[in-house]
Design a binder for these strands. Structure first.
Lengths: 259, 259
DNA sequence: TAGTGGTCTAGACCACGCC
DNA sequence: GCGTGGTCTAGACCACTAG
């Protein structure tokens, strides 16, 4: 790319010329190399969330590939919700606005199937020692601390979620300055800690309400509770947040699409 | 397409010429029209599951569009897992083999995060009268009957799932002939009832084990149980299966990827 | 009206699977 | 060696947004 290719349609030639690591099978297509270069710029902070990227034409000249190849790279980033493209406007770095949080990262819906925006009714932040599991998962240095956030969140005016979040103190230095934390916490990560949550994995289990759950959620002890464990990953693939949500599911449910 | 377009790069011209319904905004791109035409053939049964489709080149000639446009249509079908493409081999109608069932339609995993294939240890089929809700959802004619399947399913040798499936008797005539039902029931729908399950929606709640759950799953009554309601949809979008699974989540969990 | 992404076409070459 | 899908290029035109 920077060492420009031969100008004809030779894909493998160009790929080998640029010589990118590719363990899978033989070679890495040019558009994936372009995708990675663009992703690297996003990771480095060269383009901040909300910023407009150069046009396909400009990028194709800068990177020495055809516009079609840049388009394929941008389409791949768009499919991963890393950028957002608007015909007639341009390509933008994806932001954690309310809509994205609601549709990509919040799966609780009411009986009609509509996603409901949760409201934070209680929030607490404190510094703590990580468990060995947390330390390992978050990749903490020895003796590094963590932040623990506890939030109680309401849906349609009723407290439904008892949530605990664990973050590396190193990655989120001075987090306590931002108390009271905003409802949309991924936007906070993004704006003040250069951390964009790109994807997450969740594990769901049915458990009994603890005494604390019963108190927070106003239910009986041993009431069935949906426990949702989440690991959230940054653009570079690093695990940046651990979360456990305990949720009443009498009026709401967790919605999952299989496709 | 059949009424061929003008042969140049005029996209909108070709689209308007073929005049497909498109409520959204203005027009439907040619590749989506091609996608729909291919989907129609799949729905009609012209190409059966597992069959190889004509090559891109052949399709482009048949439909009077460029190979690139056919490719875009096939890529869209591939993204929806309706066809499967293999470099060097061809494009095939997707089948409900064990791998697809496991990865697309079965979200239970063990503590390491590995999907586990369930084993059916008990299966019962009977004809029944639908509830009004079932009748409405499945679009049944008045007085039409349903099949009810009850299955107990084991993971790693332990009964973990108590499952009830409801099907339209009209769509699955003579289903009782196939008793004992195979473990992979979507393959049965596909092979004998011309019904391909293309996608599904699930709603998850935490509930208490009923007396029957306790008996089947070997747990105490009021044990927390993960209840999974599923609606499965055919290629043409019709709702074809209702399912309720009640699941122990002490050794296993429901895995959900947010991306 | 200018600039952006979106579509469509045409043709070349590459990687892969199979015979 | 042949046929398949996958990549890459080049260039045209269309749809949409904004000044």
């Amino acid at each position: 790319m920077t060492n420009s290719n031969d100008g004809n349609g030779g894909a493998a030639t160009a790929s080998i010329a640029t010589g990118r690591a590719n363990m899978q099978l033989g070679y890495t297509p040019l558009y994936l190399q372009v995708r990675q270069q663009l992703l690297d710029k996003l990771i480095s902070g060269e383009w901040l969330p909300g910023a407009m990227l150069p046009s396909e034409q400009q990028l194709s000249v800068q990177m020495g590939v055809s516009q079609g190849t840049v388009r394929k790279a941008l389409d791949a980033l768009s499919a991963d919700r890393i950028v957002v493209r608007h015909q007639g406007r341009g390509t933008f770095v994806a932001e954690h606005d309310q809509r994205r949080t609601l549709f990509q990262f919040f799966k609780i819906a009411d009986d009609k199937g509509d996603r409901v925006l949760p409201e934070t009714v209680y929030s607490q932040l404190r510094r703590a020692e990580p468990s060995t599991a947390e330390s390992r998962l978050l990749g903490l240095r020895p003796k590094a601390g963590v932040w623990r956030i506890v939030r109680h969140r309401a849906l349609k005016g009723r407290v439904m979620l008892n949530e605990q979040i664990t973050l590396s103190e190193d990655r989120f230095p001075g987090l306590d300055v931002h108390v009271p934390l905003p409802n949309n916490i991924y936007e906070l990560y993004e704006r003040h800690f250069a951390t964009t949550v790109a994807r997450a994995a969740e594990q769901l289990r049915a458990v009994s309400a603890s005494a604390q759950d019963a108190d927070v959620l106003g239910c009986g002890e041993t009431t069935p509770i949906l426990q949702i464990d989440r690991q959230a990953f940054a653009l570079n693939g690093a695990l940046v947040e651990l979360r456990r949500s305990r949720c009443l599911t009498e009026q709401f449910h967790y919605a999952s699409d299989l496709r």
